[in-house]
Write a protein that binds this DNA or RNA. Structure first.
Length: 424
DNA sequence: TCTGGGGTCCTAGGACCC
DNA sequence: TCTGGGGTCCTAGGACCC
């Protein structure tokens, strides 16, 4: 048996934990640049505010109902997440942290427990120690646990915990779940399935396996098997190493000149390099993209992207910034109004496999590689101590290219300055 | 006026190898 | 007219997730 523990309205709940007067009040959290609504409290959902709506489109509604609106505060959510996960990790022998707000737990050894009771115990524990409300779904496969969790959230009579164990329980749950609400079935596949009159999860479980294999490929075949109760998706206990790292940003304003884009791309490339060093790996490929707004009907549209191999695998900020700048010059088109840009590093090789070539003359000066690595180490440690951006390459400008966050809450749990501000 | 950011996996097809 | 069999690697594109 697998349990899926999922935090309710996670970002909104994080904000509310530190503002108890907002309990029972509508709260929403915005995406970067304060663009779209990405989290809503139950009260905000009840007002009809949809997930992903641009803020400007429901500004009136937000104002009319005195909704509390927050910019997204990832320092806060990340820290609250790790507190929740630490607690969950103690409640089961194995945990897979699936996303910032959900985790799978291995319940296979809990045969002597009443699983619903234990689910309640988990909920109470997390609520007591973090203030975050969670729901629990328990079932024989991960996909069914997802469905159980959804039912626990939707139907109050479950009181936050839904266990699907017997054949009948599972069948009833599949009957009342639409295909588009199954984990792994997105918009395109829903359309395809509905056209074939496959409308509920029960329909999909009963559909022709050959048809599913042909049209939804191996991924869909696995989903079907999981719905039928055959577990295909095992617990993943260690986070697999990243295969790519991306830093991208929509601009709060229009950008047209190469010089401006160069500064933006240099800034994003610098952030990629820092993330890369944190992962302790080297990248061998670099992608830069620049784009006009997909929503602007008037101007010319353009999506420019190019990937290039780096001369040597590296995580050196200077090498990555230089290469990114060259790519940018190749894809830049004059006369466009750019709204977004990004840098992706990929083709990772572990650092250890590259730096171990021993020098024949160890008394000599350190190799260029070691010297560069030390320089980056010094940069990172200065920034760690005095705040990121304390030292940076001249072409970077984090201040100029950071997203708009006009309604940012204090980082209550990760910044001393912000805690003092709360007291004051 | 104003529309997020960061990921993964799979398939198909082409180039190339012996 | 007849034209093998079995691979790998790479890339683009399409689907999905939170």
């Amino acid at each position: 048996m697998f349990a899926l523990v999922d935090c309710n309205n996670f970002y909104a709940s994080c904000e509310r934990t530190f503002r108890p007067e907002l309990r029972l009040r509508p709260v929403v959290v915005l995406s970067n640049n304060d663009g779209c609504i990405i989290a809503r409290s139950e009260e905000a959902k009840a007002l009809g505010i949809q997930m992903g709506t641009p803020e400007f489109k429901c500004r009136e509604l937000l104002k009319k109902h005195n909704v509390s609106v927050f910019s997204s505060n990832y320092a806060l959510y990340g820290d609250m997440s790790s507190r929740v996960m630490r607690l969950l990790g103690k409640l089961a022998p194995e945990i897979e942290v699936y996303s910032i707000d959900e985790a799978f737990l291995d319940m296979s050894s809990f045969t002597r427990f009443d699983l619903a009771d234990y689910g309640q115990h988990m909920r109470k524990t997390v609520r007591l120690h973090t203030g975050i409300p969670v729901c629990v779904g328990i079932a024989p496969t991960k996909t069914l646990a997802k469905i159980a969790n959804r039912l626990a959230k939707k139907n109050p009579h479950y009181q936050g915990v839904c266990v699907l164990k017997s054949h009948a329980e599972i069948h009833d749950a599949l009957e009342c779940t639409k295909v588009e609400d199954i984990w792994g079935i997105g918009r395109q596949w829903s359309k395809l399935l509905q056209a074939k009159r496959i409308e509920s999860a029960a329909d999909l479980a009963a559909a022709s396996a050959a048809w599913v294999r042909k049209h939804l490929h191996i991924v869909g075949a696995r989903i079907q098997a999981e719905l039928q109760g055959t577990s295909c998706l095992p617990m993943e206990l260690v986070r697999p190493a990243k295969q790519s790292i991306c830093t991208s940003r929509s601009f709060g304003r229009s950008v047209s000149t190469l010089a401006e884009l160069q500064q933006a791309v240099a800034t994003f490339a610098g952030k990629c390099a820092v993330k890369l060093r944190k992962e302790d790996s080297l990248a061998s490929m670099l992608t830069v993209f620049i784009a006009t707004s997909p929503f602007d009907e008037s101007g010319a549209r353009y999506w420019g992207t190019r990937t290039a191999a780096l001369k040597h695998p590296t995580n050196d900020s200077r090498a990555i910034l230089n290469a990114a700048d060259k790519i940018l010059e190749g894809i830049f088109r004059d006369g466009m109004v750019y709204k977004k840009a990004g840098v992706i590093v990929s083709g990772f090789v572990p650092r250890k496999s590259c730096s171990t070539t021993l020098s024949l003359f160890p008394e000599e000066e350190p190799s260029a590689y070691e010297r560069d690595a030390r320089l980056m180490l010094v940069m990172d440690s200065i920034n760690q101590r005095y705040g990121s951006g304390a030292v940076h390459l001249a072409s970077e400008n984090s201040e100029a290219w950071k997203p708009n966050q006009e309604r940012l809450s204090p980082s209550y749990t990760t910044r001393w300055d912000d805690i003092i501000e709360v007291k004051g």
